[in-house]
Amino acid sequence: MFKRVIEFEGPVLGVVINGRECSVPASFTAAAAMLASEDGATRETPISGAPRAPYCMMGVCFECLLEIDGVPNQQGCLVPVAAGMRINRQRGARTV
C-alpha cells in the first residue's frame, strides 16, 4: 500500500476506484490512485488469470492495465486522473 508522504501543491478531485469514491490529488495517474487505495492485484491476465499489479510505472511493462471509464486495457500509469473518473480492476481478456 502506498501513502502520501509529500503533499505537492495542487487541486484535489473525486474519483471512483473499484466502486468506492475517493479524493485524490490531480497530479495522480489512475495507477497511482489505485495503488494509494488498494493492495494486491489490479488485474488478472487474459491467459492464466494470474494476479498482476503495476510494475514499472513508466509505460513500458503494461502490467498496470486498468478499466478506465468503462474502457479496458488502459495503461493506468500514463492516464492522469480526472474528476469523476471510474477506475476499476480488470479480469482476463476484454469482452466486446
Binding site: M1, V5, P54, M57, M58, C77
Partner: peptide
C-alpha cells in the same frame, strides 16, 4: 503483486508524493 521496480517506487514518490508503507 507486491513486486515493482525501484524506479516505479521513485516515480510514485517524485510525481505523486507516494511512498510504500
Amino acid at each position: 503483486p507486491g513486486v515493482m521496480t525501484c524506479g516505479a517506487a521513485q516515480t510514485l514518490l517524485k510525481s505523486a508524493g507516494l511512498a510504500p508503507s
